[in-house]
Amino acid sequence: MGLLHAGILNSLNNVRITAMAEKEKVIVNYVKESLPHVHVYEDADEMFESENLDVAFVTTPVSSHYPIAQSCMRKKINFFIEKPLCRNVEEARRLCEELKNTPGIIHSVGFNRRFIDTFEKAKSLLDAGILGDITSVKSSMYVSNIFTKSTGWRANKNVSGGGVLLDLGSHIVDLLLWYFGPIEEIVTSELKSIYSNEVDDAASATVNFSSGVQGQIDTSWSVRGYRLPELNIEVTGSNGKLRVNEDFIAIDLDQPTIELQEAKTRIYKQSLSTGVPVDLGGAEYTKEDMHMIDCIRENKQALVNAFEAGHTQSVIEAIYDAAKNNLSRKVEYFG
């Protein structure tokens, strides 16, 4: 992820990559040889001490997010952190408290689904009220990744903080909070470790939103047939249904609305997409990085800032807790 963000940033107007902190020898040697203008450090703190940075992009394993964010705050450096924000809610709460005491820092967290055209468009349609009163939401995110005993950092709970619920499930929760507001209670939840010893490979939960909407969440990285990660949200309201994923929005309304003249329609990503200055692995990454740079230039808070990511972390922790104790649980937000 670090190289991907570096490539995008290096191609944007008036953005210059000046330094990189990296431990992997193959990348360190390559960057030293091929990008002589980039100062390479093995330690992030050493980099922050020596360089005069406008922003740091933190794309390291989750266990280092909080300490690196602390270093950024100490040096008053704006930061972008790949999702999830932290390993657990305690780290996230402390990070957000420290941020409140360090005004002027622009911060963003990599919940990039918000920058995918279909999910953005669905947000505007839902906000316009095309479905009437929303009653229920079904959501899922799957990918076919883990089918053997995993030995990388993601399988080590001390480094990753959790399994698929924290990794993919946090994307779902971020979108659900963005679309429908706070989740008040986890009614039931279940975790399964199929291939991993320390973390969950599949997770599901039933939740209640403060608005009264009922929701279901289901995620796994050990299901067949999902070459790429796929996030689906199906919303039911008094005027029909809307289903959105990375590819399309399918809408089936009882009555057309001002925003949608056709009761039954499918809006494909192709009709929504626009070019980006450079595309490396998906326009959403470019849009996310451009948004961060714009926020710094205009001194405004980012769309997905650390406080919002902290809310997502609170919901994830409540789901873990409810599964562990086999009880319903209220979500405790902080900040």
């Binding site: 570096a6 490539g7 995008i8 290096n10 091929s34 990008l35 450079v278 490396l280």
Partner: peptide, 11 residues
């Protein structure tokens, strides 16, 4: 290709 292009990795 695009990563090498964006990072100016001519090699």
């Amino acid at each position: 290709t695009d990563l090498a292009l964006s990072l100016r990795m001519k090699n």
